[in-house]
Design a binder for these strands. Structure first.
Length: 497
RNA sequence: GGUCCUGUGGCCGAGUGGCUAGGCAGAGCUCUGCAAAAGCUCCUACAGCAGUUCGAAUCUGCUCGGGACCUCCA
């Protein structure tokens, strides 16, 4: 299998990826909290990991890809006596918490499908794994790293830090972390400022609560990922992913919990995706600058000049490396739209080419250039999933393809093997690895017949130099969103704009 | 305040100590009845200052700007 390098947040370097079990990859990605719609920033992370998942499969790995649905717990604000988000939302909307969960889970799945993200192989929910979480909290208590106060279980960060470096993931010392926290209020139950809850006591009016050894309550936010990743991937597994914003708190606590319970570092490679920004500022719910996927697809967001298709957005994201911030703007989106169209059209031309005879390339230099560029796909993708570079190589091949299609370059310049290789790799990357889809042409055969008829009439008009008629057909079809192009070989092609 | 990231041509964005990524926009040309598309050519940038080096956008230091995390957030 090809050598793959991944950037590991833990070591802050690119490392050669070696799976625990040869040929297999265990990957856990932090999924959404389903109490509201996912915004585009969330989608970026899921699209990034979808491409990573697809690439592992392309390389021939068997992947268990676990991505959770957080449908319980999750405190509001930073106070431990805060509300469960699901309960709070439920009271506002007069719904059962599980109705909220259902609504936004379905919405999330719909969005993932529109972006053509493959579903994870396991998508566990927090509410479905309460016992596992209780068991893990108990394990941490038994090992002496957690304590119970009034029905709530806290993780003892300072005690843990005496044996293991708590801030290892973000390279920070406990003292530094402590400086950043505010003073404990008088009524706080926690022993240490950085201590976090594994299990939270529920008040009687709390809608979602479960029995536990410490009374009725609900799980803390971080414990679900630790419990579920262990259940499905083991005490140690290959890859854990998520947005960079999760590293400092959520993932740091996950490491501490797993170490405290199993005495093992849970994750070998931590992968973090960077943030999506709007005018240079991170897109987030709290900042109120979140774009919903639906607003994008319909163009209804006030900052958008037009609608952008899911594939347009997906391609836009692929043009940037996953560890760089990506700024969201109309100009960038429109540039991506045109680029994607150009690339897909070139691919469609490429597909139609074929060479019958086996023989040497007519133009050795060009043939070698093509092979070099095609081979760069794998090289760059294996260098920490550099989708931007792969696309650059693809775009360098576009003029070659178009020139062959326009017959300004002879097809026999390339050897049959090179052409076949290029066709295969384009297909692999565009659709299998990048997960792009062709813009849906009309599949209505009757309509296709009608357009063909108009094209025939136009051709006749042109041959009679009746340009009034031929232009009328072309212009009016264009207004309807159908573009006719006169090809160099005298043929006519059409496409839906 | 602490920790860290970052500053690339009109815009978006890769990037390695030496070999002008790529996309979009713009200009010219070719093709074309005209368009569109396509092809060719041009637009050769790396915040500033200093240093290391034969050579730096790439390493080091300082200055300035932007951002993230330290609080729920992908």
């Amino acid at each position: 299998m090809r050598e793959l390098k991944v950037y590991n947040s833990l070591s802050r370097t690119k490392e050669i990826f070696t799976p625990l079990i040869s040929g297999h990859v265990g990957m856990y990605v932090c999924g959404p909290t389903v109490y509201s719609d996912v915004h585009l920033g969330n989608c970026r992370t899921f699209i990034s990991f979808d491409v990573i998942y697809r690439y592992f499969r392309y390389l021939g790995y068997k992947v268990r890809y676990v991505r959770n649905i957080t449908d319980a717990g999750h405190l509001e604000g930073d106070r431990d006596e805060g509300d469960d988000k699901f309960s709070k939302k439920a009271r506002v909307e007069q719904l059962e918490p599980m109705e909220i969960v259902q609504k936004y889970t379905l919405g999330f799945h719909k969005v993932m499908e529109l972006f053509n993200n493959l579903p994870p192989t396991i998508e566990p929910t927090a509410t479905g794994h309460i016992t596992e979480q209780i068991r893990m909290a108990q394990c941490i208590i038994d090992n002496g790293y957690a304590y119970v106060v009034n029905g709530t279980v806290y993780f003892d960060v300072e005690k843990y830090n005496k044996e293991k470096p708590y801030g290892i993931l973000t390279n920070r010392k406990l003292e530094e972390l402590l400086e950043g926290t505010r003073d404990l209020g008088g009524q706080d139950e926690k022993k240490g400022r950085l201590d976090f809850a594994l299990w939270i006591k529920a008040s009687s009016e709390h809608l979602m609560q479960w029995p536990s050894p410490w009374g009725m309550g609900f799980p803390g936010w971080h414990i679900e990922c630790s419990a579920m990743s262990e259940k499905y991937l083991g005490k140690q597994f290959d890859i854990h992913g998520g947005g960079m914003d999760l590293a400092a708190t959520h993932h740091t606590n996950e490491i501490a919990q797993s170490e405290a319970c199993y005495h093992t570092a849970p994750v070998r490679y931590w992968l973090h995706t960077n943030m999506l920004t709007v005018n240079g500022v991170r897109m987030s719910k709290s900042a109120g600058n979140g774009f919903l996927p639906g607003e994008l697809f319909t163009g209804s967001h006030p900052l958008l000049e037009k609608a952008y298709s899911p594939m347009n957005v997906r391609f836009f994201m692929l043009q940037t490396h996953y560890r760089s911030t990506l700024d969201f703007s109309n100009e960038a989106l429109q540039a991506a739209e045109k680029g994607l169209k150009r690339l897909l059209e070139a691919y469609n031309h490429l597909e139609k080419l074929s060479i019958d005879t086996k023989g040497p390339a007519g133009n050795k230099e060009l043939d070698e250039k093509v092979r070099k560029l095609v081979n760069e796909f794998d090289e760059n993708m294996s260098d920490d999933f550099n989708t931007a570079k792969v696309l650059a190589s693809m775009f360098e091949l576009v003029p070659v393809i178009n020139s062959i299609k326009d017959k300004t370059v002879d097809l026999s310049s390339l050897s049959k093997d090179t052409l076949t290789l290029m066709q295969e790799k384009f297909k692999n990357y565009l659709f299998d690895v990048f997960g792009l889809k062709q813009v849906t042409e009309t599949d209505n055969s009757k309509l296709q017949g009608v357009i063909q008829l108009l094209i025939d009439i136009r051709r006749e008009a042109k041959s009679k130099k009746d340009f009034v008629t031929s232009d009328k057909i072309r212009n009016q079809l264009l207004q309807l969103g159908i573009a006719i192009k006169d090809e160099k070989d005298g043929g006519m092609s059409w496409s839906v704009e």
